[in-house]
Structure formats: C-alpha cells, structure tokens
Write a protein that binds this DNA or RNA. Sequence first.
DNA 1: ATGAAAGCGCTAACAG
DNA 2: CTGTTAGCGCTTTCAT
Lengths: 343, 343
Amino acid sequence: MPTLSEVARHAGVTPATVSNVLRNRGRVGETTRQRVLEAVDALGYRPHLAARALAEGRAPTLALMVSSIANPFYPEFALAVERAARASGNFVIICNTNDDPATGRAYLDQIAGTLSEGVLVTNANLHFADLHVTESRGTPVVLCMWERPNEPPGLPCVAVDFRLAGELAGKHLLELGHRRIGAIVGSKVSGIHATRYEGFVDALRVAGVRKNRVKHAADTIHGGYTAARALLEADPQLTAIFATNDLPALGAMHAAADLGLSVPTDLSVIGITDIQLARESRPALTTVAVPTVEVAGLAVSLLRELIESSYGHARRGKTKVPMRISSAPKLVVRASTDVPRSR
Amino acid sequence: MPTLSEVARHAGVTPATVSNVLRNRGRVGETTRQRVLEAVDALGYRPHLAARALAEGRAPTLALMVSSIANPFYPEFALAVERAARASGNFVIICNTNDDPATGRAYLDQIAGTLSEGVLVTNANLHFADLHVTESRGTPVVLCMWERPNEPPGLPCVAVDFRLAGELAGKHLLELGHRRIGAIVGSKVSGIHATRYEGFVDALRVAGVRKNRVKHAADTIHGGYTAARALLEADPQLTAIFATNDLPALGAMHAAADLGLSVPTDLSVIGITDIQLARESRPALTTVAVPTVEVAGLAVSLLRELIESSYGHARRGKTKVPMRISSAPKLVVRASTDVPRSR
DNA sequence: ATGAAAGCGCTAACAG
DNA sequence: CTGTTAGCGCTTTCAT
C-alpha cells in the first residue's frame, strides 16, 4: 500500500503538503494541489486509518456492546447505529458480551480508548462500575436505552419512556374491554423490564382493574411461550396477555395456538418494541413501538459530543451528566388484539 | 491513558524492556520482570491496540461484509465469526453494504489494509472486481459461503454444497410421497440460489417427476409469502413447497395459513439453512441445515492463514487459490412436512 | 539482561 | 503557499 510520503515524492512535494491537500486545510496552491491529486490516484493512495487516528490522538472506531447480536432486536439497532456512526465518520465494532459481565469488561479493557474512542451500551448486562472505570480513563460511554427518564443512571444516556410504553399497552387492552389480563415480564436476568410492567399496572389501577397475573420469563420466544402456557393454565379465563417485549409476546401467540386458542378471537396479545418480526408474524403483532432508529441517532450524536468535548475531563468539573430523551413510544395496532369474546 | 514509556519510567527501565516483558520475549531478568508487572497494574496500563498494530505493520481488525445485519441469518453468522475472530485475537467490524456494490466498495477502500487486515465476505452483493482489487493491494479476502464446491470462484473461499442441500430437500419431499411440488427461489437479485434449485430439480428428475412450478422471490418472509400465494393460486393441487431459504419458507407457511391451508396437513413446506427462527416458528420448519458455526470457523482460520502467509505476494507466484469445504448440509425434519393428504 | 535508536504512516505546529 | 520538525504509542533490530 502506497504511503503519504510516496505520494509526496511522486508529486515532488513534502508529506505535509499532501496531508494538507487531502484534508482541505487551505493554504495550498492550485497547481501543486492538482499534482498531488494526480499522484494520489496514480498510486491509488488511501489514508491509513489506524496511523491517522494515532497521529490525531484518537481511536478509529466506536464500540457497540450488546448481549448477543443474535437476539433479533440488536441487529436492527446495530444497523441504525452503524448508519449514524458512518455518517459521522466512524466504523463500529460489535462486542457480544453474551450477557457475561466478565466478557464485557474484557472488551472494555482492550478496546476502550485504544481501538474505540467511544462506547455505546445496550442492555448487555455490564457492571456499571466497569463502565465508570472506562469513563474515568477518558473514553466516553453512553447508555442507549435507559428505561426511566426520571431516574438518571449517573451515566450519559438516551432515555426512552418505557413506563409509558407499558401504560399504552395496558390502556389499549382496557379500551378493547379486557379485564382479565395476564402479564409476562421478560428479561428475568436483568430485571430491566420492571418499569414497563409498572406502566402497565398503573393503567390497570387507574381503570379500577385490581389484579392481574404475572409471570417472569426469559426475553425470548421460548420464554414467552412457557410463561404464557403457565398463565393460561392457571387462569383459562384470561382474555389478553401483555408482554414487556415482542419476543415473549410472539411466544405467547405460539402458546395460544398450541392450546387451541385463536389470536385475537380467543386471546389478545400485545408486546413492546416493534421489531421486524412483529410485522411479519401471523397474525401480525400489536405492539408499542419504540423509536429505534431515532434512539440510535441520538446515542451516536451524544457520544460524539462527549468525545469532542473530551467529556472525561469536563466531568471532573462536576458537569451534569447529559441525558437525551427520545420521542414517545407509540401504540401500533395490528392483528393480535381485538375485543374479548364474550363467553 | 498511561503509555508504555510511563510504565517504563515508573519501573525504572526502558520502553523496550516493558515491551519485552509484555510479550514474553524472553531475555528479561526475573526481578525487573516483576517490577515491570507491578508498574503495569499500578498504573492500569493497557496496550494501545492501534499503535501496536501500526508498529507491527498490520491492521487491528477483521472486516465482515454483509448485505444487511437485519436479515436474520447474518447476526447468527456474525456471532460465530466474532467468536472465532476473538479466539485468534481479532476484533470485527461489521460492514453493511445494504446490497449496494458502491457502498461495499467504499468500505473496502477505506478499511482494507488500514483498519482491517482481512476481509470476510458473505452474500453482500459485491463486485468480484472490487474484491480482486483489495486482494491485489495485499489484503486477503475470503468468501464465506460459496455455493458451488465444483466451480471455484477464483477467490479464497469456504464452500458449502448447496446443490446437495437442494437435493436433500427434494428427496425428503419425494420420500414423503409428494409429486406436485412448488419451488420458491429466493435471492432474486443475486441469482445466487440457482444451485440450490438445481439440486432440487435433480432430485425430482431422478425420481421421474417431470415438472414443477417455480417462482422467484426476494429472500424475505414477505417475498416467500407473495411467491407462495402465486404458486398456490396457479396450482391449488400443490401438496408441498420447497424454498431455497428459510425466510421465504416461513413466508410460504403464512401464505398457507391465509389461504386456509394447514401445514403440514394440507401443505408441506421445507427450507434451507436452519436459522433460529426455523426452530421457533409454528409449526417448526423442516429444513436442510447448513453448518453455520463451522463455516464461520473455517472462514476465519483460512483468512488468518492467508494473512500470516502474506497471501497477496504469494499469489503472484501462481499459488493455487485455496478453498475449504464445510461438512455437508443435513436434513432436519420438524413439523412443517408430512405425507401429502390424499384428496 | 537491558538500553538506545529508528521507524510504522500520519498530523500538527511552526518556519520560511 | 510549502517545507521542516517533532511526535502519537508501540515494536524491533542492534549495541552494550
């Protein structure tokens, strides 16, 4: 691969001039400018990103921490992140923590500040302490989907009002006339879906519906399947099921099918997020959509701001921890919910 | 972030010595060794990956080109690639080409050799010419899922016998007694699924089944849905549908449902690949499994070999283009296929 | 066994 | 406008 100095030699100038031309740093004569440009593509020169980053004192990528890219929500988010990152000149490295804090820490230790100039964190089951460490070493961190806008996490974040999401789901079911509703709380491990469930419960309370059955489950189709079966067996009178995420909601639909219940006639099902599969399931899943693309954009731009303001240092001056709030989740009515069948 | 020389100063030695300690390059006294190690964790030193790569004359990551990480097969593959890459000391950058050759080229131009020391290519709709360019510039490229072991692509690759996959699918349907079978060929754009279809047709021919209906479609659930409807409307007597990929097969199941046909009683459906969704659909999809994890491992190790042998140069010496062959695809019978209902 | 020095490819003052 | 110089953080001969 040709280097800057080779190009310089070829054009009969110095490396500095070539660099100036390439970065449009003005102060370059038009004729040399041309000569340099010719040399550049005569040799097929391409800047060495790692070298450039080193010279500029920054790292060449952004890191995206996810628990597992195989969980269908993350690819969609990752795609949005990659687009936003690329628009601002960064490449992104995907770090699968596999829900293991130690793996997450290993990633952070290795790449934060050396390969990545910033870290984006989704629900990857990381210890906050580890995140604070990398932040204190000067690499900005932003949490991508903080669930409680009213309780800042002490780390820069973009917040999504997930309590509202739960509430909207609950209201939708109530408005259809459901009174006997089961709930599946996904994310058994992290407990992070609690807020969504609270919103749902609030909606019921306001409507004067006292009690509902809850079941915790893994945040997977299978987890939802198992939980839904348990729920339905414990109370065959249930007319609707709310799940804190689309995957378990999809599982609930499968469970219904296996129990001979048809959705939405015999059972309504609603989820949260609006992943692609929600649109593609049969029947299509009613859900509360989270603005994924917007969140990714906000996260990347917040991260870039922190990087450019060398947040790590500013932080010591007691700067407030920044938080961006995404637009509100929105109900998307599809085919999995309907009025309860009178029985 | 502390640097090597700071550690050196702290330990009262020179950077060279620290480097030697860290890389176990022998020739270091035990006492200094200890002192260095202490300094390292007193300061919390971590090597600067970009700087190290630069000094070593290599790039710090591997690039994985995919058309879109949102297509459910890729995340699974990406996860496997990441694991293999990490095991051999690399991080991976995901490059979504969005099926646009220009985007792919832009990625290759920017990162090949400067940020990535090797490139892994899935069906990302890249021009081979572009790949040859990056290869000729010294960055090894390997194709991850070459479909025709007997027709080497002129680029290093790991091949999967997809013709056989199609054949196995066809045979399975035939053995169940199906004679009137529709086929959906996904990947309309790249035409890359032709081989799979050929295998299927071969199986029919051998069995003396002359004709079958084919429909081309996008490699998506929706594409399969549309194609299946068209197929079923054109020939309501069809008792089975073969799709060249799981996603369209899943779509075919939806189509069947919407037409009031139950799977597998009224219609059998089979796909190829065995993505996670195939296990999670209702009914679970019968499919021909491709050894994804194995392929990812082979691809990464082949790529590493090429990198270490500086393949780019060797190549000029007319070296044979290497190809690895994965183990054979295997039929996985689930619930979407059965004997045809006599009607 | 350790140190000195050069250099990876690039950028960024500062001179001229 | 262009060149000179230094240096990013690390590795790697080559001396000592």
